[in-house]
Write a protein that binds this DNA or RNA. Structure first.
Lengths: 195, 195
DNA sequence: AATGAAACTGAGTTATCGCTCAGTTTTACG
DNA sequence: CGTAAAACTGAGCGATAACTCAGTTTCATT
């Protein structure tokens, strides 16, 4: 079970940073100190290995969010929203490779032909958007968030915004940290209750 | 000159939709009705072909934005901002393959080793963010946009938001059109002058 | 029609790919 | 111990990749 774990870990980094087609079984074997046959002993194909990685990433992300937000007190829905955004950015830094992987096109290509991929991707995105939505709904109930916005759609916009920032950071286009305060301000202005 | 054009056009679609590594010279030759050698006669390598495509995409995008916004009257900076967002989404639909290509990781991978890639990508992003920034600055001057936001940083956030939406649309995650109104509303709430 | 340059061809080269499989080593357990 | 299952190995296979090159066709100009 030692080698299987190593393969999963190294493959996650390589698939995320070099891409799926550009990562060969040969390289994977070399970097994990295994024989190439071992990869195909544990996973039925290269695609199967990718799927196993995606399942792990899903488990990890869903688990992290559930643990962070269960039984956690928030002063208001608006504050909860801000903390969700903040935690998302924190997690994207902590699990950089995994978020990079989620931004790679080949996952979405496979999900067109293999429903297992689609299922896992949807689970991740639904989990994330649901949390944003819950924060907005909470805020609308306690009066900290304006009722003029549509909760689900605004959650999607918010998610788009935060996830887009993570993408730019991972692509080294510009520093996401420098935009953190601006993002929070935008978030507040977008959702704040009207006076 | 006929075949060179065909190669550029078909390769743009294939690189954008299938990826760089997953598109072979063989397939490219078949779909363009050329011999494989013709590709390497016109472009010194597969990477050279990709670079030629990127240069075209840059020219096209920069040109489109310059043409659309030169000598164009806007009632206010806020309205200009909205029209920029709107035009960006329109263009992303019109040139879907090219925007899809810009979201592919291999471009950013090449730009780490080949400054020509970096140069072209920066030209595109700078052009886009500059226009968003100009709209915000205009709005702050005419009073339609709040002075509480930092023009450049807000332009980046705005761009992140719009570009993220395009990405979700291209990845078939959800319908960007259904979020258009919400995006505009967010844009206005984010930037509106305080009362 | 003649000619030189530019465009184009496709078989061939070398390398690497994902994957298989027959065989070896390690592990778990009575 | 003994033994059977599980984990692991690496040479080898067929397919396909990017790219080359010696030769052919097309084209513009006279």
């Amino acid at each position: 079970m030692k080698k299987k774990e190593a393969i999963l870990r190294v493959a996650t980094v390589l698939f995320a940073n070099k891409g799926f087609a550009d990562t060969s079984g040969q390289e994977l074997a070399r970097l994990t100190g295994t024989a190439e046959g071992t990869i195909f002993y544990h996973f039925k194909s290269k695609e199967g290995l990718l799927l196993a990685i995606l399942e792990r990433v899903r488990d990890e992300i869903v688990d992290q969010f559930e643990r962070f937000f269960e039984n956690r007190p928030f002063a208001s829905g608006m504050e909860m929203t801000e903390e969700v955004v903040s935690f998302y950015l924190y997690l994207a830094g902590l699990m950089e490779d995994k978020f990079l992987l989620l931004h790679r096109h080949f996952l979405y290509k496979f999900s067109e032909s293999n429903p297992e991929f689609r299922k896992n991707l949807e689970a991740i995105y639904n989990c994330l958007v649901d949390i944003f939505e819950k924060a907005i709904v909470t805020g609308q109930a306690d009066g900290s968030v304006t009722k003029e916005v549509h909760p689900r759609k605004s959650a999607l916009i918010l998610f788009t915004m935060v996830d887009g920032l993570v993408r730019f950071k991972n692509y080294n286009l510009y520093d996401a940290g420098a935009l953190f305060n601006e993002l929070m301000q935008t978030c507040r202005r977008m959702l704040q209750a009207d006076t």
